[in-house]
Design a protein around this nucleic acid. Structure first.
Lengths: 261, 261
DNA sequence: CGTAGTCTTGATTTCCGTCAATCGGGGTGG
DNA sequence: CCACCCCGATTGACGGAAATCAAGACTACG
């Protein structure tokens, strides 16, 4: 029940300054809900006061260990996953800059899932007590975090639908639509390309499929001129085609202003 | 984009009194995180000021419609689900008394899922603006709701693991373990019985399986003396056997006090 | 140039979905 | 009080989608 950080995380290099942080991912995320004032900008900056760099393939969080912090992802991508005793693995979601990447795994006595760095990443650890303090002192931020958690939960539910009730073709098409439309990685227009360091094995583990099957399905997408995956680059060739293939409704997760904020 | 309530909900019968509500499910849920003071008890009571009765099989929330409220479930059970255009259905979770049953579906411009009453239920509608107000005025309640949302998200993730990477036997065993250990319906000891109005079709839709297969798997559970399902009654005969069958770790979701609250 | 990681492809097996029919119990109405 | 009916449980036969196993190719990188 020890607090784990050193075994998996390289010694923290304090890079943050405490200065207002108007360009970081978390600011961008909260700004989608309300306009932050100076004080709020300031506190977001302070949350980034100390940062850690973690290299690719390292686990930032390990299932079963105890943590006293959550991590704000400043740059890079992570995957959150869980492994069963016999090695089967399920990827739960991907973290992009601005996400509290260890939410909700680190909020239990022991972490309920692991977080692995898909690229070199920079994170800002935030003690859990500071979260409660944030809720008390900056309720607008707390409310927005709550709404943000609701969004995450809804995305998780949608993935549950995909894994539970869609076939392989639909799942793979859905995978990219979720990435683009829901996680706001790139845009959803024909010809758009975006960088995402995902392997076919990762796609398979996210969708509950086997790697060979994902490979065959990706070929289908390529042949039908819907999407090509080239190394770390993905190119959307036919957004509507993808949407049809996945029977996906991109308006499903339209944000709205938080009532009363 | 209209506000829907009358088509699916019977005319509200004001049953709440605004009195402190020390026995309701929401109080119980929050009390797991911290001890409510009088003022907090009072506000929880006020949230239950007006209630609605909804009959079995009715949809409390319908996917695609717009809502301005969430519902606190006072009594009864509900299921939250989503249907694909061709009729395939995925059950996302079950709501028990004390849950905000329309979270997170109702927090978008249009509801992202439907909520159906498995029994006759009583709900207390809470306007969304009131949630923001609650966060600002009663930060401890807000924080606890946030933690509670984290728990829901973790449960959803665990179900994703089940549906994505477990076979039918493991899934069905997991189904009951989640119900008991995670949702706190009944207890997890040999010989314990609990009431839960679930049909085999509902189990199938929650686990991404077909009804006949669920039936066969339930028979297996019965024959192995692990669990019997008799109408609305479930009897746990061998908790450890179930845990083994599902390769499930019941300590996984242990609560801990919220740091700093 | 060698190695490790990833992608690709094929052959075989199996789990589970689908379809269809039957059964049983509890509620309802005549 | 009885007959009907609907919903849900049960069972069987069949087919198919995807897992698994295995081997080889490609690429990046040291």
């Amino acid at each position: 029940m020890d607090i784990v950080s050193s075994p998996t995380v390289s010694p923290g290099v304090a890079q943050g300054t405490g200065d207002p942080c108007r360009t970081c991912g978390l600011t961008a995320k909260l700004s989608r809900y309300f306009e932050l004032n100076d004080e709020e900008h300031d506190i977001i900056g302070r949350l980034h006061a100390s940062t850690q760099r973690v290299e690719r393939r390292r686990d930032l969080v390990r299932e079963g260990h105890a943590y006293a912090t959550v991590y704000i992802l400043c740059s890079g991508f992570v995957s959150r996953y869980r492994v069963l005793p016999d090695g089967r693995r399920q990827v739960l979601n991907f973290g992009v800059p601005g996400d509290l990447v260890s939410f909700p795994s680190c909020m239990f006595a022991r972490a309920t899932a692991s977080v692995c760095c898909m690229t070199e990443v920079v994170v800002a650890p935030v003690p859990l007590e500071q979260l409660s303090w944030l809720f008390a002192r900056f309720p607008r931020i707390g409310t927005a975090l709550f709404w943000s958690a609701a969004r995450e939960a809804a995305i998780c539910a949608e993935r549950l639908v995909a894994v539970g009730r869609r076939d392989a073709d639909e799942r793979v098409a859905y995978f990219f639509l979720e990435l683009i439309a829901l996680r706001c990685v790139g845009t959803l227009r024909d010809g758009d390309r975006f960088t995402f360091p995902v392997t076919q094995e990762l796609i398979a583990d996210a969708l509950g499929l086997g790697t060979p099957h994902v490979n065959r399905t990706l070929r289908k997408l390529r042949q039908r001129r819907l999407l090509v995956l080239d190394g770390q680059e993905a190119v959307v060739q036919d957004a509507d085609g993808l949407i049809t293939m996945a029977s996906f409704d991109p308006t499903h997760f339209e944000m709205r202003p938080i009532p009363g904020l």
